[in-house]
């Protein structure tokens, strides 16, 4: 299983980024082998639509699970439509911890947007 975790720097031992749409990086980790790759989030500085842009990017990476600190209404709707499961980081401090907590079934599954929209013009 490949899972995506939002992170502030591009590696497995990075501190997590609690933001989804405006996360600095997405680290995609194979939960069995711990092989990982990282990608800069193309929407981190988007003037608007960061959540939908990030969701589309996650879908293009082929991940089935994404772990982050919150999911706004647009990101939630998009990820949910693509059948991508969303989990909250909980107490995870690093990407590696988030993977461990995910594997130990310690993360809360998200069933509704967890943050109000940040949309502002």
């Amino acid at each position: 299983m490949k899972i995506v975790i939002s992170a502030i720097s591009p590696d497995l031992d990075s501190v997590i980024d609690p933001r989804f749409g405006r996360a600095a990086y997405f680290v995609i980790v194979d939960t069995h082998t711990l092989e990982w790759q990282s990608y800069p989030n193309p929407g981190t500085n988007a003037s608007s639509g960061a959540g939908t842009q990030a969701a589309q990017y996650i879908a293009s990476l082929g991940a089935g699970v994404v772990v982050s600190g919150d999911f706004g209404p647009n990101a939630y709707k998009a990820l949910d439509a693509a059948g991508i499961a969303m989990y909250l980081l909980g107490t995870s401090q690093t990407v590696r911890e988030a993977v461990r907590n995910y594997k130990a079934d310690q993360l809360a599954l998200v069933n509704a947007p967890t943050a109000p929209g940040h949309h502002m013009h």
Binding site: S48, G49, A59, K77, A78, A81, A82
Partner: peptide, 20 residues
Amino acid sequence: ACQYHAIVMMGKKTLVFPQL
């Protein structure tokens, strides 16, 4: 084309976000 990311491709779904 959408610079506001108001229309996105999620696999085999095209989603529109009217508020964006």
